[in-house]
């Protein structure tokens, strides 16, 4: 399998505080990788390095063979091919759902407006929100907003999807509607890197699980190995804390 996302020995500092320490991993085409770990462990920072939203000082990240940190890389162009879903949805509140879905298609991919709308509505239907097309984000629930955000990312025909704690800001009863969309996506063979605490999701669709602590990748294992018997003490502790209640 060829690596879609390659993270090679990256380190990052905020001033003198090191947030990432020699992180190395990769995500193959069609692979679903879940990144977990305690808060402040650097998992969100790591995933944001993949599309260059967070700069890093050392190491290299390649997506589809293109170096993210290189000076001559057209970052907007590369980002347009990587979908990202945020913890706080980040829909554009001044635009309708349809406009949210079509803005980047029209402005970045230069798709004709009608094609963009057709594509957007098709994806909106797919996340089960067809009848909300003309509403504004503020009129939707958190779970609905996050599904629109996923559709917005998918409208760009991404080669990979990044999820940064997509369910952490949601009320418990809305988590599943978002996870269902993500599970369906994973089963279709989308390349996914997912920062989440939802171990049920990891068990169901992940191929690999990465465990981070204090800016380091402590464990990078196949799902069965990770949940069966984690090698590190810290990962075992983390698992027992979030699974036993």
């Amino acid at each position: 399998m060829s690596a879609m996302i390659e993270i090679k020995d990256i380190s990052k500092w905020y001033g003198s505080f090191q947030v990432l320490t020699h992180c190395t991993t990769q995500v193959a085409k069609g692979e679903v990788v879940v990144v977990c770990g305690p808060s402040g462990s650097g998992k969100s920072t790591l995933i944001k390095c993949v599309n260059g939203l967070e700069p890093f000082q050392q190491g290299e990240v390649r997506v589809d063979g293109i170096s993210v940190g290189a000076k001559n890389t057209n970052l907007p162009k590369l980002r347009a091919r990587i979908g990202m879903v945020f913890q706080n949805f980040e829909l554009f509140p001044h635009l309708s759902v349809t406009e949210n879905l079509t803005l980047a298609q029209i402005k970045v991919l230069r798709r004709p407006r009608e094609d963009a709308i057709e594509k957007g509505l098709k994806l909106l239907d797919r996340v089960g929100l067809k009848e909300h097309a003309s509403k504004f984000p503020g009129q939707l629930s958190g779970g609905q907003q996050q599904r629109v955000a996923i559709a917005r990312a998918l409208a760009m025909d991404p080669i990979a999807m990044l999820f940064d704690e997509p369910t952490s800001a949601l009320d418990p009863e809305m988590i599943n509607e978002v996870l269902d969309v993500m599970v369906a996506l994973a089963k279709e063979g989308m390349t996914m890197m997912v920062v989440t605490h939802e171990m049920g999701f990891a068990r169901k669709v992940a191929h690999r699980v990465i465990f981070m602590d204090k800016g380091e990748i402590v464990e990078d294992a196949m799902k069965e190995d990770f949940f069966g018997k984690p090698r590190s003490e810290r990962a075992a502790q983390f698992l027992s804390k979030i699974l036993h209640h």
Binding site: R79, I82, E90, K107, M156
Partner: peptide, 19 residues
């Protein structure tokens, strides 16, 4: 996060600002 969302979609500086 709004800026980040715009950037993640591939919008450049002027598009993110303007739209």
């Amino acid at each position: 996060g709004q800026v980040a969302a715009g950037q993640a979609l591939g919008l450049n500086y002027w598009q993110t600002m303007g739209k």
